[in-house]
């Protein structure tokens, strides 16, 4: 199953992913519209000693957020593998258990509504909006094994050049 994979060295902190994420989740569907609607982004670029580090939901196999959810709103879809508190019969009540449970801080509180907010994986799109928008290919929507194969090839090339 494909996942959002991150090539940390390729990220230059341009924040385009956050804008695209907000646009995809806004009423207008546009970047400028999302800025006017104040739609929050669900992917975060942290700065660590001046270096940009993308942080987004890993859609864990055994999600701590879903485990902690009291109402059952936060669930992992067995078909798509996506973890979300949206579109289910049970409603999110904003108890924030999921926020406290997530070790990555990938779940946050909606700035104006009392619901938890997180990456929903952009269901219905061929790839998540953040990945599609990344100009540096720092975010990729790939099978983890495919990403790993690329890494292992790169490592092998470096080793061969160094020897």
């Amino acid at each position: 199953m494909k996942s959002i994979m991150i090539d940390l060295d390729a990220c230059n902190g341009c924040l385009t992913c956050t804008l695209a994420c907000a646009a995809a989740h806004s009423r207008s569907g546009s970047i400028v519209g999302a800025m006017q609607e104040k739609t929050p982004a669900r992917i975060f670029i942290e700065a660590v000693n001046g270096r940009a580090v993308p942080v987004t939901c890993r859609h864990c196999e055994e999600p701590a957020c879903a485990e902690a959810c009291m109402t059952g709103a936060m669930r992992k879809d067995s078909l798509t593998g996506l973890v979300s508190n949206e579109g289910h019969e049970q409603k999110c009540v904003g108890c924030w258990m999921c926020i406290m449970a997530c070790p990555y801080g990938a779940v946050t509180a909606h700035p104006r509504e009392r619901v938890a907010l997180k990456c929903d994986g952009c269901p219905g799109l061929p790839q998540p909006a953040c990945v599609a928008a990344c100009p540096n290919r720092a975010l990729r929507y790939e099978e983890p094994a495919f990403f790993a194969a690329g890494r292992s090839r790169d490592a092998a090339c470096s080793a061969a050049q160094a020897s």
Binding site: N12, G13, C14, L15, I45, E46, A47, G50, R51, A52, P135, N136
Partner: peptide
């Protein structure tokens, strides 16, 4: 303001 956009920096 951190992180700052790499395109602008360059």
């Amino acid at each position: 303001q951190q992180p700052q956009c790499g395109f602008g920096m360059q």
